[in-house]
């Protein structure tokens, strides 16, 4: 009888361990706080707010970055998961935190999409964007036996046949949705966007229920290797290790550069010295071989970019996103 009770207690301990505690423990183990006088990070942990749930690929990437940053900063970098409302919950939470560098958010394009679709009460200017960390490049795929051999052929077909080409994406408001709408409308082509989650767009494309799928490389790469699908373009001009031979849309004459980016942001008012320290820790973490390995496994491309360049990129991205969302809303209103 005793032993069985002990086992129930063991299960309880395992439950607790496997879920919330584990990442913090690991971070704490890898970095014993050094006693420094007044300088940041002050021996206190640097929290990293994540937006898409403990089990998401986004949070998995955040954990790798947090481990790397903890090693450089010498303090634990615990993950604080605040999922909800497409990321808005976490951004709102961070905006209420002290601008002392101990509160950071694992941000992404979601800051623009949630703002322009009305879920977030403030835009990207409310934060200081410390550094870009990764990008994921949307890839435009068609069936291997499709008649279009180049992006140009597809675009011309779509232009000549409005409301005929069905383009699958990974969900309403997702980066693949925004980027695909931006691409086709820049050429004046009208398409039917098909919102799919969980890789269903790939299945639809393979079965011929849609003509085109815009997906992140991981979702299509096994089928490109098997010869069932063909990638016509990357909707980003950042080279992708998964598809080194595929040309970007920009190189093929379409001015679209819309990767999914992720980076670290802190509340406005955080001092320059603190931002510089965080930036340095991020740079070292991103350039480590561990980070690159994790990228191959989880499916992201390390793409460090410092504050100024990063902020400029976000501003451009935000402008385009706002235009695309307006266009989507107008199309929806017209459909009603």
């Amino acid at each position: 009888m005793r032993s069985s009770i002990r086992r129930v207690a063991l299960a309880a301990a395992l439950t607790a361990m496997a879920s919330s505690g584990i990442c913090q423990d690991e971070a704490a183990k890898s970095a014993k706080p050094k006693s420094s006088s007044s300088a940041f990070p002050d021996g206190k942990p640097v929290e990293m707010v994540t937006l898409f749930g403990a089990a998401s690929a986004s949070t998995a990437t955040a954990r790798v970055l947090a481990d790397g940053m903890a090693k450089v900063l010498g303090v634990p970098v615990p993950i604080v998961d605040k999922p909800g409302a497409g990321g808005a919950t976490g951004y709102v939470y961070l905006s209420t935190q002290k601008p002392d560098g101990h509160s950071t958010v694992w941000s992404s394009n979601s800051i623009s999409t949630t703002f322009h679709s009305g879920q977030l009460p403030f835009d990207y200017k409310n934060f200081v964007h410390v550094a870009r960390v990764t990008v994921e490049n949307p890839a435009l795929a068609v069936k291997a036996d499709a008649p279009w051999k180049t992006l140009k052929e597809l675009m011309e077909y779509a232009k000549a046949n409005p409301d005929k080409v069905r383009v699958g994406n990974s969900g309403q408001g997702s980066q693949t949705h925004i980027a695909s709408v931006a691409l086709f409308s820049s050429a004046g082509a009208k398409i039917i966007p098909v919102h799919r989650t969980g890789g269903q767009a790939t299945a639809d494309l393979l079965a011929g229920r849609i003509e085109v799928a815009v997906q992140f490389p991981q979702a299509v790469v096994p089928h490109v290797k098997s010869g069932d699908l063909r990638v016509l373009a990357l909707l980003s001009s950042i080279p992708d290790p998964v598809f080194p031979d595929v040309k970007s849309a920009k190189a093929q004459g379409y001015n679209i550069d819309m990767p999914l980016w992720r980076g670290i942001a802190v509340p406005k008012g955080t001092s320059k010295a603190v931002v510089a320290k965080l930036q340095d820790a991020i740079k070292k973490a991103v350039e480590s071989p561990e980070f690159k390995d994790a990228g191959n496994k989880i499916g992201f491309t390390p793409a460090y970019q410092p504050t100024d360049a990063f902020t400029k990129m976000i501003a451009e991205d935000d402008k385009r996103t706002s235009e695309v969302i307006k266009e989507i809303k107008a199309a929806e209103a017209a459909a009603k």
Partner: peptide, 13 residues
Amino acid sequence: LVISTIGVYSVSS
């Protein structure tokens, strides 16, 4: 009950 509560809370704090 304790296991359940810890479990539910730990999913997203």
